[in-house]
Structures are given as structure tokens and as C-alpha cells.
Amino acid sequence: MNCESAREQLIDLWRDALEPEARAELERHLHDCPACERERVELGTLWSELGALGDDAATVPSAGLRGRFYRALGDYQQELERPPAWRRLLDSLLAPAAPHPRPAWSIATLLLGIALGASIVSAVSARNEVQRLSAEVDSMRRVVSLSLLDHPSASERLRGVSWSTRASADERIVEALLGSVRNDPNVNVRLVALEALAGRIDSPRVRAGLIETLPRQDSPVLQVALAELLDEQNGSAEIAIRLLLERNDLDPSVRERIESLLRSV
């Protein structure tokens, strides 16, 4: 018999419910095992004390118990009804009875409010601000472009054309570029302006403007570049191209190139 099974049987021993052989066996183990014997003695004392408790003591509360119970319950309810700690702190700070911390707190709250408000407002208006700025940059580019396109220096006018391609399409820009293609004294500027307009050829105004200027171009470079650009856009430019071919001063190689262009259509 081992200690574990011996201790399980202790309760039966106290209850006097063990078979005689089991009881003899257990007593032999207890005799040999001091640890189990010590437990039998200690727990046996408790067992006998429990047995000594009278029936009344177990079932009938004492007179004082009722009063103690209700007091404890009352305390618990009060604890539940109290506001939480942060609330009590806030209350104490805002209470009229505490005059010193109040202005400081008010100012702090005001500042916090302003800061919060400002950040909310700025977050809301940030997008509008970006839109407004990009619109401003766009209009600035147009202004720069327009003023550069009027500059006496060809290099600056080239820059003007370059600026115009960075701005959004605008009637004045388109007219200015058409004006450059038509009248700029420098062939380079005319050519670059034409290339800038090539990106906007879908606009009817650009197309019409370029078609109109084609027969008037003196420079072979422009004649060919314009004819090639307009030719890519089906039919309606053909008349202008034919008008160009009627010019007497047309360079033979230009004539050849443009005629081959017309044949390929």
C-alpha cells in the first residue's frame, strides 16, 4: 500500500467505514509511514472538531450577522454609485469651491480647444488649400508663359513655349501659341510652338488655326512639319495642303515630300 491510496482511505477510517482487512492494512502502513501517520493525527483532530459543531451553529445565523450583512451591502452600493476617479478629479477642479485652479484650467482648456479646432479646420481645408495652390501655380505658369512668348529674345520665347506645355490648356495660351506659329520672326520658335500645339491637336480651335496658317508659312521646315502634323488628322487639312502646293516659291524637296504625303493618304 502506498501513501496516496492510504490517504484516500483516511476519510473512510474516520467514518469507520473500512472493511476489517483494509483497515488492518492501512494501520500497518500508518505504523510504517510517519508522514501518513502525522496527517492522520492532524486531519483526524479537524474531523472530530467538525463533528463537534452543533446543528444550531451550522444553520442559524447569529443575531449580529443580519446587521453586518446589510451594512456591507450598503457600503457596496455606495461604492458603485460614486463617480469614477477621473470624474471626481475633474469635478474637484471645476468645482466653484476651488477658485485657484479654475482660471488656469480654463485657459488651458481654451488653448486646447483652439489647437484642436485649428487642426481640425486645417485638416479640412488642407485639400482646398492644395487645390487653390495648384490652381495658382497653373495660372502663374500661364502668365509666365504668356509674358515670355512676347519677349524680344528668341531664347526666352522658346522658354515661354516650354512653360506653356506645363500649364493646363487655356484659350489665351492656345491663341498665343497659334500666334507664335503664325508670326514669330524666328523659325525655331515657330517650330517649337507648333510641337507644343501638336499635343492639343484634338481641339477644333487648334486644328483650325494650324490649317489656316499652313499656306502662309514661308519656312520649308514649318511647311513640312505642319503638313505632316495636319495630315495625320484625316481629310479637312487637305485643302490647306493643296493651297500650299500652289505656292510658286515652294522648295522642290518640300513639294516632293508633301506630294508623297498626299499620295499616302
Partner: peptide, 11 residues
Amino acid sequence: PDKAMSFTTWN
């Protein structure tokens, strides 16, 4: 710096 330049010829 910052000057645009251009070189063009036909033939």
C-alpha cells in the same frame, strides 16, 4: 544656365 536653345535645319 536656364537659356533655352534650338538648332534647326531642313537639309
